[in-house]
Design a protein around this nucleic acid. Structure first.
Length: 800
RNA sequence: GCGGGCGUGGCGGAAUUGGCAGACGCGCCAGACUUAGGAUCUGGUAUCUUUGAUGUGAAGGUUCAAGUCCUUUCGCCCGCACCA
């Protein structure tokens, strides 16, 4: 019997929806399970196979949890603000609102066809004014708590998208949206003070169950380092030059200093700098380099010596030259460094090029040839001589120096404050008014949401200003504080704003008096399991942990960390093993697979193709294999017979239930499916099975192939929905074989296998092994030195 | 450069964490049923000089026993990257 997947899939999807069987209950005594997947950006291209893989993991786990009796919240929404929609609107003239609605409708119907068990009654849309009202509300709360500021600094700017980007959005010097080169521009922009939460974000990682590499990546991104700030007197200036170093132990090796080209002290003392023209020329040269070029590690250092100013080394009073060079960044530390060429590779390269002294202060290397960055005994260091920077910690060094009034302990982070704005239309308006008298004034909470105005032209301004700046009726307003004429902020929030708290809104999606009801938050939070892509680890995952921790600090949410557990799925590669892309023409459309093979086959194949966390190439033949398997499964209803169950088959069934139950929890879906395939092969070999064995199998496969499972469940007269039936249990006793086949090795080489009782003693096992012909033959004339029996596994006899 | 990971048949991948390497699937080979097979079913399928030997990128080592642990080395992928 061939099953008609099109009809049965439509039939069950409709029944599930009509009866609302996947709706999470709000006031329940049941144990809760909150499963979260990263909500999609509803692009015009529709659903991608990557979406299916990203959601299928927790889909299976959520379905299993429901069958285990949990109250499951497994929602999906749409992260719909963003540039692609806006660019499409610019190109076609269709309003972003319309484009978004169309795309959401398309995505929703495609998701439903896959049979995902999302609770569609809790969908959120970040572009809905009832949603972004609360995004704005959180922004104002941050403003109120001093976490929002405006600063004119060098920012990452994408000339193609005409927007300012955060550090997270310009990794590798490329725009995260269009991949063109980022340039540095001086601009007045909004920042969120995420650095204030750096330590809290680090500490929070200790209490959560994240994949180890997710944790390490976040730790590295935050990049906390401990060191010391040291002030150097400047000959020729009446202010001190402050530097940050993680190696205060090498202070006696300092032979020069380097400033970032943008360092403000240069402008303050430009009259004293006799070669200021040269300095200006070098600055101009650096300005032309992109941030990416500038951060490339290059052996060939460039720089200019500052004539007229020199530094004084605080430990020995020596006069040392000051240089500017672009290998020092204004954005990290103080924008100035003490250079120790003997023990730092970059300083070494610079000193070699400019002919500066190299003084060894740590023994262990050969400074004639290269910088020595290792540990060792300290020399040429006056009062520090005899210390060993391996034995004595950096903290000890800082202490010794501080006693002499040199430097103080300090901490630095690689993470920078979050540039929080886009000069575009399709984003949350920033609810701030600029008033001549009162400065930056937040909109009163009761005036939220601040709606996006209806406009015709979405094109951003040439000078990088928001299209909203052209709308006078929007810009001109009254100051909420003094009532005078004022101007509204025209920047909008970046893409990541709406996604920084969306999981909270699923809990209470229609609440219009607060983010979400505190009682409901208490029941549902934290998210029990969050699955998503590795690409979000240093963006969304950091941002949303920051927002959530802030909301905790102001008492809006009941738990510190939003996500108790975080896993990640691997990419699906094209059939050629390359990353799928339109230009390579290797994209597989999941909708075609659903059309040709059905949703169950698609789901099954995506989970079977390999390790869930690893990348794996698509294979059309692999899809066919899964189709074949499901055909064989569907025919099982014809094989039901009464009478006694086959004992061997029964045992395998219980082992399979145990295996699948455990594998799902570890996201080892591929081996779970392999075990079910092996079971089906065995059933075919036996030729029949009993009704209750089939019932158990149908429930077992239900999370993977739910439509087929429902159909079979109905055929065999199961009550209600298979999706809500009890998860099959296994009998531990039946998972243990009474007799086992064990391997017999002689000197580590396999010679035979023998059947013995599972609970056999070492003596009987070894005796049984020796009784084997081949073993006896191999042992003939040899002296037995050692006999090993590993229960249920192996006998190894060592003989000479 | 730093951090993380990986390397197993023709292919995707398994291996109870030190205990019979290659589960399961694909592909391939043979057979059955067929007018037909790119459908279905059954059997086979690591390699070789096949009573045996050799095999998990390479070379050493620990062990009764190594894909798994240690050392060295080669190659690939991902993240960060002149972070002072």
């Amino acid at each position: 019997m061939r099953h008609d997947f099109k009809n049965i899939e439509e039939k069950w999807q409709k029944k599930w929806e009509d009866e609302g069987i996947f709706h999470a209950e709000d006031n329940s005594d049941k144990k809760k399970f909150f499963a979260l997947v990263e909500f999609p950006y509803p692009s015009g291209a529709g659903m991608h196979v990557g979406h299916v893989k990203a959601y299928s993991g927790l889909e299976v786990i959520s379905r299993k949890r429901r069958m285990e009796g949990y109250n499951v919240l497994f929602p999906l929404g749409f992260d719909a603000f963003g540039l692609p929609t806006e660019n499409y609107a610019i190109k076609t003239g269709i309003h972003p609102r319309k484009v978004t609605d169309m795309n959401i409708a398309k995505f929703t119907s495609q998701m439903k066809r896959v049979g995902f068990s999302f609770d569609w009654t809790r969908t959120v849309d970040t572009t809905d004014e009832n949603y972004y009202k609360w995004t704005q509300w959180i922004f104002l709360k941050m403003f109120e708590n001093g976490l929002v500021f405006r600063d004119k600094t060098l920012v990452n700017y994408c000339p193609s998208c005409k927007v300012v980007l955060s550090n997270e959005d310009s990794q590798g010097g490329k725009c995260d949206i269009c991949h063109s080169d980022i340039v540095q521009r001086s601009k007045d922009v909004w920042y969120l003070r995420i650095t204030e939460y750096a330590d809290k974000l680090l500490e929070g990682l200790e209490d959560v169950d994240y994949l180890p590499n997710v944790k390490t990546q976040q730790v590295n991104w935050i990049g906390k380092s401990r060191g010391a700030f040291v002030n150097f007197d400047v000959d020729g200036a009446d202010e001190k030059l402050r530097i940050y170093t993680t190696r205060p132990d090498t202070l006696f090796g300092v032979t020069f200093m380097v400033l970032a080209p943008e360092h403000p002290i240069l402008d303050t003392y430009k009259d004293k700098i006799t070669n200021f023209a040269e300095v200006e020329a070098y600055r101009e040269l650096c300005g032309k380099k992109t941030e990416f070029e500038r951060t490339q590690l290059v052996k060939d250092k460039t720089g200019v010596k500052i004539e007229g100013l020199s530094g004084i080394n605080p430990v020995n009073g020596k006069n040392i030259p000051i240089y500017i060079s672009d290998y020092v960044m204004m954005g990290y530390g103080t924008g100035a460094i003490m250079a120790v060429p003997a023990h730092d590779e970059r300083d070494y390269d610079f000193a070699k090029k400019f002919g500066i002294d190299i003084i060894e202060v740590i023994k262990g290397g050969n400074i004639e040839e290269a910088a020595y960055t290792g540990d060792g005994e300290m020399v040429n260091s006056d009062f520090l001589n005899g210390y060993d920077n391996k034995r004595d910690s950096i903290d000890k060094m800082i202490e010794v120096l501080a006693e002499r009034g040199i430097g103080e302990a300090g901490v630095q982070y690689k993470m920078k404050d979050w540039a929080f704005n886009r000069q575009r239309y399709w984003g949350e308006p920033i609810p701030i008014v600029h008033c001549e008298h009162c400065g930056m004034v937040p909109l009163p909470y009761e005036e939220l949401p601040l709606r996006l105005p209806e406009i015709e032209n979405f094109e951003p301004g040439e000078g990088g200003e928001s299209p909203l700046a052209k709308i006078d009726s929007y810009v001109n307003c009254k100051c909420p504080k003094c009532g005078a004429d004022a101007k509204r902020e025209t920047d909008t929030m970046p893409q990541w704003a709406g996604s920084s708290w969306y999981f909270l809104r699923y809990i209470d999606p229609n609440n219009d008096t607060c983010l979400a009801d505190p009682e409901k938050l208490k029941y549902w939070m934290p998210v029990d399991w969050y699955n998503g892509g590795m690409e979000h680890v240093t963006r969304h995952l950091i941002y949303s942990r920051f927002w959530h921790r802030f909301l905790y600090d102001i008492g809006e949410v009941p738990v510190k960390e939003p996500y108790a557990k975080r896993t990640a799925q691997g990419l699906i590669l094209g059939p050629d093993g390359e990353k799928m892309s339109k230009s390579k023409g290797n994209v597989v459309d999941p909708n075609d697979v659903v059309d040709a093979y059905g949703a169950d086959v698609l789901r099954m194949y995506i989970l079977f193709m390999g390790d869930y966390g690893a990348a794996a190439p698509w294979s059309e033949n692999g899809v066919k294999g899964c189709k074949r398997f499901l055909e064989r499964v569907s025919a099982l209803t014809d094989m039901v017979k009464g009478g006694e169950a086959d004992a061997e088959l029964d045992s395998l069934l219980h082992k399979t239930i145990k295996k699948v139950t455990g594998d799902i929890e570890e996201m080892k879906f591929n081996t779970a499916i392999a075990a079910m395939m092996a079971l089906v092969n065995k059933i075919y070999e036996v030729g029949s099975l009993t009704q209750d064995r089939l019932s158990a199998f149908v429930r077992l496969i239900c999370p993977f192939a739910p439509h087929l499972a429902e159909e079979m469940w109905e055929t065999i007269g199961g009550a209600g929905f298979a999706s809500l039936a009890a998860w099959p249990e296994y009998d531990e006793a039946k998972c243990v074989d009474s007799t086992v086949e064990i391997a017999v090795q002689i000197c580590g080489k396999l010679r035979a296998t023998v059947m013995i009782a599972a609970d056999a003693t070492a003596e009987t096992a070894i005796a049984a092994a020796k009784a084997n012909d081949k073993v006896a033959q191999a042992l003939e004339g040899k002296k037995i030195i050692k006999e090993i029996y590993v229960p249920g596994r192996i006998v190894n006899i060592v003989a000479k």
